[in-house]
C-alpha cells in the first residue's frame, strides 16, 4: 500500500465504539476532578482578562461592529478560541504524555479494551475538557451581560463540535510527534495564526479577498461565524454550511487520529 492508500484508509476507518471508551474518559475525568478548583480558576480567569483587555479595552476605541458593541462582537470568538485551545492542548500534549511518557495507553491495552476505544475515549475526553472551558467562559460572559438570547444553547452545541474537531486534531498531532517540540510547530504554525485570522478580533470582510477565502478553510472561522450568528439572533442558511464543515472535519480527524494512534500503541 502506498502512503496515499493508507491516508484514505485512515480517513474512513470508522473505529468501533464500545464500553472501553467510557472507562478511558472516566480515567481522565477522575484526574481532572482532583485538580478541579485550579482548573476552574484558570479556565475562567484567563478569558476574563481577555474580555477586559480586548473586549472593553480595545472595544473602547472601536465602538461598534455591524451594529453591535465590540465586546459583544468579540465574545463568541472568545468562547470558540478558548474551547479550541483547551481541546487541542489536552489532545496533543496530554495525548503524547500518556502515549510516550506515562505509558498510560500500554496499561489500558492490557485490559479488555481495544486500541481504537482508547483513542476514541481520549478524543471524547479532550473535547469534553474543551467544552468545559467553553461553558466556563459562557458563565463569565453571562455575568458580564454578553448573553441575551436562548440561542446560546445551540451556540454551545456548535462549539461542542468545534472542541471535538480540535481534540481529534490534537491527538492526530500527537500521533506524529517524536518529542514535545512538535507541538510548538503545530501551535505557532497553525493554531495561533488561526486564532488571529478566523474573524475573531475583526470581521473578515475587511481583509483582502484571498485571505478571506483562505479563512473559510479554517475550522475556527466556521465556529466563530455560527456562534456569532446565533448569539446575535441573526441566523441564516450559512449556519448549515458552518455546522456541516465542522462535522465533516471532526469525523475525518477522528478516524484519521484513531487509525494512526492505534498503530502507535498496538504494534
Amino acid at each position: 500500500m502506498t502512503a496515499l492508500h493508507i491516508f484514505f484508509a485512515d480517513l474512513f476507518s470508522f473505529p468501533s465504539w464500545g464500553r472501553g471508551v467510557w472507562a478511558v474518559w472516566l480515567r481522565n475525568f477522575l484526574y481532572f476532578r482532583h485538580t478541579l478548583l485550579i482548573s476552574v480558576f484558570w479556565v475562567m480567569f484567563e478569558p476574563l482578562l481577555y474580555l477586559i483587555a480586548i473586549g472593553y479595552g480595545v472595544g473602547y476605541f472601536v465602538g461598534q461592529i455591524d451594529g453591535v458593541p465590540y465586546s459583544k462582537f468579540f465574545f463568541p470568538a472568545l468562547m470558540a478560541t478558548s474551547g479550541m485551545f483547551v481541546a487541542f492542548f489536552e489532545g496533543s500534549y496530554g495525548g503524547y504524555t500518556k502515549l510516550a511518557r506515562q505509558k498510560t495507553y500500554d496499561t489500558i491495552l492490557l485490559a479488555p479494551i481495544d486500541p481504537a476505544e482508547i483513542i476514541l475515549g481520549e478524543i471524547l475526553w479532550a473535547a469534553s475538557k474543551g467544552f468545559f472551558s467553553v461553558v466556563a467562559v459562557a458563565l463569565v460572559g453571562a455575568v458580564q451581560g454578553m448573553i441575551d438570547t436562548i440561542l446560546i444553547i445551540p451556540a454551545l452545541l456548535v462549539l461542542a463540535i468545534l472542541c471535538w474537531v480540535f481534540s481529534a486534531f490534537g491527538i492526530l498531532m500527537a500521533s506524529y510527534a517524536r518529542n514535545y517540540d512538535w507541538f510548538v510547530y503545530a501551535q505557532s504554525g497553525f493554531i495561533i495564526p488561526m486564532s488571529l485570522f478566523s474573524g475573531t478580533y475583526f470581521p473578515l470582510n475587511h481583509l483582502p479577498q484571498v485571505i478571506q477565502q483562505a479563512a473559510y478553510l479554517l475550522p475556527l472561522t466556521h465556529a466563530v461565524m455560527a456562534s456569532r450568528a446565533l448569539l446575535q439572533d441573526n441566523v441564516g442558511s450559512l449556519l448549515f454550511l458552518n455546522v456541516g464543515v465542522l462535522f465533516a472535519l471532526g469525523f475525518l480527524f477522528s478516524n484519521w487520529a484513531t487509525a494512526r494512534m492505534s498503530r502507535r500503541i498496538y504494534y
Binding site: R27, H34, D106, L110
Partner: peptide, 13 residues
C-alpha cells in the same frame, strides 16, 4: 493478568 517490564503505573493517581 500482566506485569509489563515498564510497570505503566499511572503517576496521576
Amino acid at each position: 493478568g500482566v506485569v509489563p517490564q515498564e510497570d505503566g503505573l499511572d503517576p496521576d493517581f
